[in-house]
Amino acid sequence: MTETPILNILVLDDQGLVRAGMTELIRISEPRAKVFEASNYAMTIALLDKHYFQFAFLDFDLKAEFSGLDVLKYLHEQEMDTRAVMLSGCLEQDVVFQCLNAGACGYIPKDMSNNGVFRSALDTVLQGGIFLPEPIAGFNIYSNKLFPSLTDPSPESLGINGRCLEVLVYLCQGLSNKAIARKMCVEEGTIRKDYVPKLFRVFKVTRRTELLFEVSKRRIKLPKL
């Protein structure tokens, strides 16, 4: 029998109680997860350099010189394929956009009063989807009114498969065209001129941020590469 691989997940928050709560919720959602905790930027970078993480939940404001956004930028600069999700008490659209543009694949408000909603957000991210808060994404995660005929559609149902699907996954991880090209062993121009425009046409968008919003709204689950 093949053993189920361990899922390494990193939780960064300067408050111990918040980290403990997040860790417990993650273990409930993903019993096979091995959760590593960090309280500051230096601890986080040390863990990232030592272990491979499939997911990282990063507190936006660490009340220190370096923030969770700095960690996000580090992941992007190092071209790590860790799916990073920002945690923040701020719901300003500019802040959400800043995180998405820096490579975040989700944004979870820390002040969610409904524990069920928070669990749903965690489940969405851990299952390969993108979660954005309702005031930003403009839809209710418990309804599918915007897309009544597309209940949790797969990328394949939208005509996205093969190498194009690989590009979609990497785009949602925040990787640059250059980094994606390097991973796929193709020319950067192939990503920029062929695959990205095709995905934009499928989702009827013109920017990466808009693409992430569409993936979130349609509750599309991305495969693990």
Results as ranks from 00 to 15, higher is better:
D61Q: 09
F60H: 04
V71A: 01
Q93S: 10
D61W: 08
G103C: 12
T44V: 05
V117I: 13
K34L: 13
Y107D: 01
M43L: 14
A42L: 14
N40W: 12
A64K: 12
S39Q: 06
L91K: 01
D111K: 06
S120K: 15
Q93I: 08
N140G: 14
K50Y: 08
Q93N: 14
F57G: 00
L132I: 04
N40E: 12
N40A: 09
K73D: 04
D70Y: 11
D111E: 09
H76L: 14
N140Y: 15
A46W: 15
E77H: 15
G138L: 15
D81H: 14
S39P: 01
V95L: 12
C99A: 15
S120C: 15
Y41H: 10
A84H: 02
K110V: 11
E65C: 09
A104P: 00
M43G: 04
Y52S: 10
F139N: 05
V71D: 01
Y52E: 12
T124R: 03
Y107A: 04
S67C: 13
G116R: 10
L48Y: 09
P109T: 07
Q127C: 14
F57S: 00
S39W: 10
G89A: 15
D61F: 13
K34Y: 10
Q54I: 03
I136E: 02
A84C: 13
E134T: 08
V35D: 03
D70A: 05
D49Q: 11
D61Y: 06
G106M: 02
F131G: 00
A38C: 13
F53I: 01
G89N: 13
D81A: 11
H51W: 14
Y142F: 11
F97Q: 06
V117S: 04
L47A: 09
I130D: 00
I45R: 03
L62M: 10
G138D: 07
G128M: 02
A104G: 08
K73A: 05
R83Y: 11
C90L: 11
Q78I: 06
P109G: 04
M80W: 04
R119Q: 10
Q127M: 06
D111W: 09
S88Q: 08
M86Q: 04
G138C: 13
L69E: 00
Y41A: 00
M43P: 01
F118G: 00
C99F: 14
E37M: 15
K63C: 12
L48N: 02
K73C: 02
N114M: 08
I45L: 15
E77V: 03
R83F: 13
F131Y: 15
Y107K: 01
D123R: 08
E134K: 03
A42K: 06
Q78W: 13
C99K: 00
A42E: 14
G116C: 09
P133A: 08
S39R: 04
T44W: 08
C90F: 09
F53W: 14
A137I: 06
A64L: 15
G128N: 07
L126A: 12
L47H: 08
D81Y: 09
A56Y: 09
S67Y: 08
M43Q: 07
M86G: 01
T124H: 07
N101E: 09
G128S: 11
E37Y: 02
L62P: 00
V117G: 05
S39E: 05
G129T: 05
F66I: 07
R119G: 02
